[in-house]
Write a protein that binds this DNA or RNA. Structure first.
Ligand SMILES: [Mn+2]
Ligand SMILES: [Mn+2]
Ligand SMILES: [Zn+2]
Ligand SMILES: [Zn+2]
Lengths: 146, 146
DNA sequence: ATTTTTATTGAGACTCTATATCATTATTTT
DNA sequence: AAAATAATGATATAGAGTCTCAATAAAAAT
């Protein structure tokens, strides 16, 4: 299960008639090298820092494929652009965000599966996932709102 | 409480040393004229259609102020840009989105206040709000995933 | 192994959303 | 009425993300 993301991605690509390339491999590896939230330009920078030449266009394109495959998820918009995280091999979780220092705390809550189930039943939806962000002020930032 | 948004906005502006102008009034009125989800350009178009001349810049600026005041909320990103809704005078709700036809269903779930409360306690957060989106396929769109 | 087919790449142009600049105008205060 | 200062609109600018296309490389066919 863990470390298996390459096989999952290759299967996904094969199923869609897409190809496995060194660029896609490099992006996949970098995305799964750290557990953190990142954006496209940062990912591009990291790859270059490792001496791997993957164009900006290919980074964006591969990121799209990774999201489509379900290995990676869009987490939130900050500073006017999307941020991502790898999700394959990790428990589903949500994000608690401090409006002051912008710190992000990951959390799991047992109530969410119930919410999904109720919605599926009430609206005849085939629910595939959800995104929950909770906002507020962390202990350190409380009272600095002005 | 309902229809009170003008007074709330004027108070908000006064408190921040900002001014009440015809342009801000026009934007506020248009935002509260319909209950739907909209984007900045659409709002601008609607104002022009009414014969009101408010520049694009002022639309974006006023939208920012409305969000800051809490009268309006950012709901989701679609087609690469933000969508909004007025929230003042309405019960808090979340959004169920069909990945096929992009239809949006509003819903309320009793579990959410509990989630907020548990997070506040566990992380010493002063929680101010949350945003929940649930994704899936509506009855009409199921099986068209390809 | 060679050839053929076709997806991918990279460079840069381009689109679009959103913000910044700044001279002019309007609101608020004195 | 005058002074102070915030807001406006036109336009420029920034930034994220997509598109184009000729060259290249992966996979399939022979
Ligand atoms: Mn996370
Ligand atoms: Mn809504
Ligand atoms: Zn904080
Ligand atoms: Zn649908």
């Amino acid at each position: 299960m863990a470390g298996d993301e390459e096989q999952v991605f290759r299967n996904f690509l094969a199923r869609k008639g897409r190809r496995w390339t060194p660029e896609r491999k490099a992006v996949l590896r970098e995305v799964f090298a750290h557990h953190d939230h990142f954006d496209a330009e940062e990912l591009h920078r990291r790859l270059r820092a490792r001496g791997l030449t993957v164009s900006r266009a290919s980074v964006y394109r591969t990121l799209g494929l990774l999201v489509e495959s379900g290995l990676v998820a869009e987490v939130f918009v900050e500073d006017g652009h999307m941020h991502y995280e790898h999700v394959y091999g990790h428990e589903q979780h949500s994000h608690l965000r401090c409006l002051g220092c912008r710190r992000v705390i990951e959390f799991r809550d047992e109530a969410l599966p119930g919410v999904e189930a109720r919605l599926a039943a009430a609206h005849h939806f085939q629910v595939t996932g959800h995104k929950l962000e909770v906002y507020g002020w962390c202990a350190a930032c409380q009272g600095k709102e002005g």
